[in-house]
């Protein structure tokens, strides 16, 4: 099946700020594809190149090298055709604060080719979807941050795009609005829209994504389904045990002998904690408890930490995602 989005060797070097030397190479030759109907997340810390990538894909800036093909159209050769297929939800609240929510929607709707009764109907639907129909006539500058975010999303959905770009849509919103935005993304995907979602929140990528691309310093350092990424990087489950200090050494020796445990280390900061690594932490846990019980060593606390995208990023870069 032909992918909806194909990115080939995409590079972007910005012009130098003071006019001298080479500008910042924000995207360093990334290639990936996105299938129709999937939610694809670009995960990475601030400054990783996610927004630059989306800006190129949406025709805002030109690539230095490479190309993006969306629905068979090249963004460098036929940007208008690409823009008809996409809806963009930028990270910033890109609305006219002096105008009402409905007037903003109508303005951008007209520019997306809607008009007349179709535009009015679509505005009604979008206002209903973002839950602001009763406040549609109020000026944007009277809205809360969460409400503005919802209108910002609404503008990107007006013309029922095949593909929606959502660039960090939950930045700076309260938990309730965040939940509502994530549910909206899922609902849009269920309606058949393909979603490209960028975030630096690992939990959001985990919850939403069919596939994830992890970016760092302008490079795509990992790509695939969440489970595949974890397996690729070989990150194991961690079992953390808290024991009386006098039992730590004996417990370490005892647990190292268990076949389900690959490594046992004492916590460098807390001498009463042991870190156990296992390929399958949940299955190994009963063996661990039984062995300790037989040796009359009762743990005071047990915690299982399964690998996630944060662990993958940490494994690949040596840094936490929010560093």
């Amino acid at each position: 099946m032909t992918p909806l989005v194909e990115i080939h060797g995409l590079k972007k070097r910005y012009a130098p700020k003071n006019g001298a030397g080479e500008g910042n190479l924000a995207v360093k030759g990334i290639s990936l594809s996105i299938q129709k109907g999937e939610i694809f997340s670009l995960l990475g810390p601030n400054g990783a190149g996610k927004t630059t990538t989306i800006s190129i894909m949406s025709g805002l800036i030109a690539p230095t090298e490479g190309d993006v093909i969306i629905g068979g159209h090249s963004i460098t050769k036929n940007a208008v055709a690409v823009k008809k297929l996409i809806g963009v939800v930028p990270q910033e609240i890109a609305l006219y604060p002096e105008l009402s929510a409905r007037t903003n929607l109508e303005f951008f709707g007209r520019l997306q080719g809607l008009g007349g009764a179709a535009l009015a109907k679509r505005c009604d639907e979008v206002l209903e979807f973002i839950g602001l129909r009763d406040r549609q006539r109020e000026r944007i500058d009277t809205f809360s941050g969460g409400m503005k975010r919802r209108v910002n999303i609404g503008v990107g959905l007006l013309h029922k795009p095949t593909l929606v770009f959502m660039d960090e849509p939950t930045v700076g919103v309260d938990p309730q609005s965040r939940r509502s935005i994530l549910d909206a993304v899922k609902a849009l995907n269920q309606q058949g829209m393909t979603v490209l979602y960028t975030t630096h929140y690992m939990e959001e990528a985990e919850e939403l994504s069919d596939r994830v691309g992890i970016m760092d310093h302008g490079e795509l350092i990992a790509l695939g389904k969440q489970i595949e990424l974890i397996q690729q990087t070989g990150v194991k489950d961690a079992i953390i045990l808290k024991l009386p200090s006098e039992h730590i050494e004996a417990a370490q020796t005892l647990l190292r002998a268990l076949p389900v445990i690959s490594n046992v280390e004492v916590d460098s900061d807390h001498s009463d904690k042991l870190h156990l690594l296992s390929d399958r932490g949940r299955q190994a846990l009963p063996h661990v408890i039984r062995a300790l019980d037989e040796a009359n060593m009762i743990p005071t606390a047990i915690q299982i930490s399964e690998p996630n995208l944060e662990s993958v990023f940490l494994h690949l870069t040596g840094r936490a995602l929010r560093d």
Binding site: K83, V88, P90, A94, L95, F108, Q112
Partner: peptide
Amino acid sequence: QRYTLQRLIMMPMP
């Protein structure tokens, strides 16, 4: 600064 200009550029028109 408001990013509305960028949003306009993303609209399907020259």
